[in-house]
Structures are given as structure tokens and as C-alpha cells.
């Protein structure tokens, strides 16, 4: 049911393929991304180079991973404000295990468990105690940051082995490893959301939780799982970040939840849930990455960059709203 509305809100029976494409939200954001790319290519000779394009995707990967998890949450009608802090927990735990001489795989699994556990806790409190996601994850944002500072004693944990550094800083041929991770995770998320009953339930709950409940979907389980996924993605993102920096910073990820939410919304996913998708989120994250990178290349002061970023988000939401009203 809501599967219909997520992609082609007005595609009638007789609609041509072209019309269908035009109506896809992803197409519009994709066009926006291309527009920005064209402008930047014309303004900076350094923008459209292979190195720089790989730079952009690598830089985007951290936010994109967070935003993928956030997409699940927002599609189900929730929000997760704790991802920035959860990623710091995961990177600190992994870094701590690594520097205490633990095997790399165990260290990574340890970090993933820690972050996923916090996400699961979010989900359980939200679904079982019927508390608003906004408040629960806001509290978790503070708790997880505190836990990170306690665990690290406020100091960065640094100096990992080469194998671990490969995760965030290595390359396979010309392709940076974070880009490969990004593509793999994107594919999995796409399949889960579009091809599995679980994915359909997430959309259904976001469309109308009551209706989903009535049609026999175990909404509490699905909602809990969605937050656990977000915790898992945040952990993955934090671990890649620690590897890139060769250091787990106790303040890592501060404010990143807003960038992740912005990427999801820019990608055309409705903040009220039920409509949108993972490819849109990737495009949204790329738009933000491209803008950051482009403004750096154009030597624009960071103060203006913040204003520019906010303006783009506002503009995107406005255009999205307008096109929906027109439809």
C-alpha cells in the first residue's frame, strides 16, 4: 500500500516511462546534485578530477552511513538524535580494545556491539514504554557522550595497527576502502528496504502505525529493530572515522546527527515517515559532501559555509513541499 506512494505518487496507468522518472523524488534531488556539480565544475578547475571525486565520496561516507541508519528510523516515523554520540562510543570502545592488544576483528565487533546495544536500548524504551523518540534519543545523546568521556577519560585514544588503518585510509586499486564499505552497506540497505517484508513493515508503520498494528504487523519489534539498525550504522561510521583519523576522539561526531537528518530529508524522505528511500539519502549526503568540498575548493570562509549549507537544506525542503502540493 504505502509501497505505492513512496516512489511514484502520481504515476497513472497510462503514464509514460519519462513521466514516471520525472515524478520520482530521487530524480529531483539527483537533478539538484547534478546542478550543483555543474556549477562547481565551472567555478573550480580542481573540482572535477578523479582524486577530488574520490575525496568527496570518502568524506561523505561517514555522514552517509549515519544517514542510512537514520533513514530506517525516519521512514518508520521516528527520529534518532543520539547517532553522533553513539558513533563516539563505538569508536572509543574499538580503539580501547585495539590499543589494549585485542585482535582487530574482536575490537570492531566490540565497538559494533556497544553502539548497537545503545540503539537497541533506545528502541526498547521508545516502543515498550511508549516514550517519544525525540526525548529518548536526546537523553541518549547526552548519556552516550558522557560514557565516551568516562571511558576515554576525556583523552583521544590513538595509534592503531596498519590493518585497522586500512579500513578508513586504505585503497583497493584506485578506490578508497570507505567508498567500498559505503557501496556494500547501501546495497544491503536497499535490498532490506525494498525486497523484504521487514522493509515493507517499516514503510507501513511510518505511513500509519495504527493501521500497521491492525493488519497484524508487530510494530514494537519493528520499531525496536529500526533503532538498533541506526545504532549499528552509527557504530560502523564511528569505527571508519577512528580508522581514518588513526585516533578515536572523545568529542567525535558532535553535531553529526543534524547532518545525517539533513541528508535524509534532502534525499526526499518525509520527516513524518512512510515515504522516501535509501538512494535518496545517498544523494542527499552527496549533496552535502559536494557543497562542503566545493566551498572549500572555492576558498569560502567556513562561516559562510554554514549559512550556505542551511540555505540549501531550506531550499530543498521548500521545493519538495511545493512539488507535493502541485501533485
Amino acid at each position: 500500500m504505502s509501497q505505492q506512494s513512496q516512489e511514484q505518487p502520481q504515476a497513472g496507468v497510462g503514464a509514460t516511462l519519462l513521466e514516471k522518472i520525472k515524478s520520482a523524488t530521487q530524480f529531483k534531488t539527483g537533478l539538484g546534485l547534478l546542478g550543483i556539480i555543474v556549477v562547481l565544475s565551472l567555478s573550480s578547475e580542481y573540482f572535477l578530477t578523479v582524486t577530488n571525486l574520490f575525496n568527496i565520496v570518502t568524506q561523505t561516507s561517514i555522514n552517509a552511513l549515519l544517514a542510512f541508519g537514520m533513514t530506517f528510523v525516519i521512514l518508520s516515523g521516528g527520529i534518532d538524535l543520539s547517532v553522533g554520540s553513539v558513533m563516539a562510543v563505538a569508536s572509543a570502545v574499538t580503539a580501547g580494545l585495539l590499543t589494549s592488544g585485542m585482535n582487530m576483528v574482536i575490537a570492531i565487533i566490540g565497538g559494533l556491539i556497544a553502539g548497537t546495544g545503545l540503539g537497541l536500548f533506545n528502541g526498547l524504551v521508545i516502543s515498550r514504554l511508549a516514550m517519544p523518540a525525540f526525548i529518548v534519543t536526546l537523553a541518549m545523546k547526552s548519556i552516550a557522550r558522557g560514557l565516551t568521556l568516562i571511558y576515554t577519560d576525556g583523552r583521544p585514544i590513538s595509534g592503531f595497527n596498519d590493518a585497522f588503518q586500512f579500513l578508513g585510509g586504505g585503497k583497493v586499486g584506485p578506490i578508497p576502502v570507505p567508498v567500498i564499505i559505503l557501496v556494500i552497506v547501501l546495497t544491503i540497505c536497499y535490498i532490506v528496504l525494498k525486497k523484504t517484508p521487514f522493509g515493507r513493515y517499516v514503510y507501513a508503520i511510518g505511513g500509519s502505525e495504527e493501521a500497521a498494528e491492525l493488519s497484524g504487523i508487530k510494530t514494537k519489534v519493528i520499531k525496536t529493530t529500526v533503532f538498533a539498525i541506526s545504532g549499528f550504522m552509527a557504530s560502523l561510521s564511528g569505527i571508519v572515522l577512528a580508522s581514518r583519523l588513526n585516533s578515536a576522539q572523545p568529542t567525535a561526531g558532535t553535531g553529526y546527527e543534524l547532518d545525517a537528518i539533513a541528508a535524509v530529508v534532502l534525499g526526499g524522505t518525509s520527516l513524518t515517515g512512510g515515504r522516501g528511500g535509501i538512494t535518496g539519502t545517498l544523494i542527499g549526503a552527496l549533496i552535502m559532501g559536494v557543497i562542503n568540498n566545493g566551498l572549500n575548493l572555492l576558498n569560502v570562509s567556513s562561516f559562510y559555509q554554514l549559512v550556505a549549507k542551511g540555505t540549501v537544506i531550506l531550499l530543498a525542503i521548500y521545493l519538495d513541499r511545493r512539488s507535493k502540493q502541485a501533485a
Partner: peptide
Amino acid sequence: MVADAQNDAAKQLNSIQDLLVKQ
């Protein structure tokens, strides 16, 4: 060319990559 990291180590790494692209 100045790049401000806003006290974020990850952001600093990104902006240095961007500076390096500009030769």
C-alpha cells in the same frame, strides 16, 4: 587558502584533502 576545522578532527582531515587537491 584558509580552511577552518571548527575543532573537529575529521573535518580538518577532509579540508586538508580539499586543499591538497588544489595543488
